[in-house]
């Protein structure tokens, strides 16, 4: 198995884990971490595709795209964290308003049992 196919399979595995985490968790910081993990999986796929032929020098176009993508993902993280802080300052919780009532109803249920 070559380096390319190994890292391609691994990147798809990491992407699936990140997608599951993004859907299954309600805490906003955890969602931001999940998006970062999904993004890094995509970067890994692009870079390993750029080196598909190990004898030739790697393709520069995916490298440029990944460099741009890293900067975009960092600025996305900063903006999303600022929004999270704002939500926390307004509501006292770091959840989205849609998911928060369901969680407290579930907790009420557990406390009553």
């Amino acid at each position: 198995m070559s380096q390319f196919s190994l890292y391609a399979v691994i990147s798809m595995l990491i992407f699936s884990i990140g997608l599951y985490g993004f859907i299954a968790h309600a805490h906003l910081v955890r969602k931001i971490l999940a998006v970062n993990i999904m993004g890094s999986a995509i970067f890994l796929l692009l870079i390993s595709a750029a080196r598909r032929d190990p004898t030739a020098p790697p393709d520069p176009v995916p490298h440029a795209m990944v460099l741009t993508g890293i900067v975009v993902s960092v600025s996305f993280t900063a903006f999303a964290l600022a929004l999270t802080r704002r939500i926390y300052a307004e509501t006292g919780q770091a959840y989205l308003p849609e998911t928060e009532p369901a969680i407290s109803a579930q907790k009420q249920d557990i406390v009553q049992k």
């Binding site: 299954a24 968790h25 309600a26 805490h27 910081v29 955890r30 931001i32 971490l33 993280t77 900063a78 964290l81 999270t84 802080r85 926390y88 770091a94 959840y95 998911t99 969680i103 907790k107």
Partner: peptide, 18 residues
């Protein structure tokens, strides 16, 4: 950035699948 935000909003996650 993540550590700074955690210091502001606390590190306990009382929800989610886990």
């Amino acid at each position: 950035l993540l550590l700074d935000t955690l210091g502001r909003i606390g590190s306990r996650d009382t929800s989610g699948a886990a």
